[in-house]
Nucleic acid binder design. Structure first.
Lengths: 113, 113
DNA sequence: CTCGTATATGCCTTGACACGTATATGCTCC
DNA sequence: GGAGCATATACGTGTCAAGGCATATACGAG
């Protein structure tokens, strides 16, 4: 379990990280929002903590977990060379993202069939 | 093996992707550059192909593999919310990256040789 | 058509890890 | 100090994927 990529390969861990992006949370809050058993949450938090993704501060019986940026920035850094590559394929990208989130109708072209 | 994150969790697969970012490569070329057994390369390429990370064109007995941008852009998209978060921690980031790559002396001392 | 090269696939073993359940630790309040 | 809550850890189990090795398929050259 060395690399940051293996850490974020786990869906529940990604969910936890996404939760923490807004604000710090206690274990119980995470447990409730993600509806997963408490030991599972604690174990994933342990992995995330040891990998430097999160840190905890003690508040009586609770532990408040918050994000730490470095490991995800490492992912971002690995991605950098590819960004340059796919800037040549912008059209394909937009089409792809549109398929994923058909929400924002990016200003439709008055395109006539 | 559903999510793109599980795909890039494998170090050899990340190595293959990094190889392909410069230009398309045949299986044999990948095999030699990464010094891994050919069946291993083929299996990883299969995973990458089925997940849409690469595509192959046939050239006689060879298959030339090239990158496809979409799946990595999906990773990039997942990372987006966190970028906003860590823009508040830029200093810590820079310190971190400096520790990782002490090469580029961003602008500190005019260190020349 | 046979041989050599390039790539893919099948089978087997092994190891890692996620989960469930049970239990331990720690803190607060009475 | 005992009860109750919040969190962590231990153990056993099942699953799944990566690697090694052997072999199959495909193509080109002679």
């Amino acid at each position: 379990m060395e690399s940051v990529f293996e850490i974020i390969a786990e869906p529940n861990r990604r969910a936890i990280l996404s939760l923490l992006v807004s604000s710090e949370q206690s274990v119980g809050e995470i447990e409730r929002q993600l509806d997963m058993p408490q030991p599972t949450v604690s174990k994933h938090l342990r992995v995330l903590r040891e990998a430097g993704f999160v840190e905890a501060t003690v508040d009586a019986q609770r532990r408040l977990y918050r994000l730490k940026p470095e490991p995800l920035q490492e992912v971002d850094a690995w991605l950098a060379p590819f960004r340059q590559f796919w800037s040549a394929h912008v059209d394909a990208l937009e089409r792809h993202l549109d398929r994923m989130h058909p929400k924002t109708p990016t200003k439709k072209k008055t395109r006539r069939r």
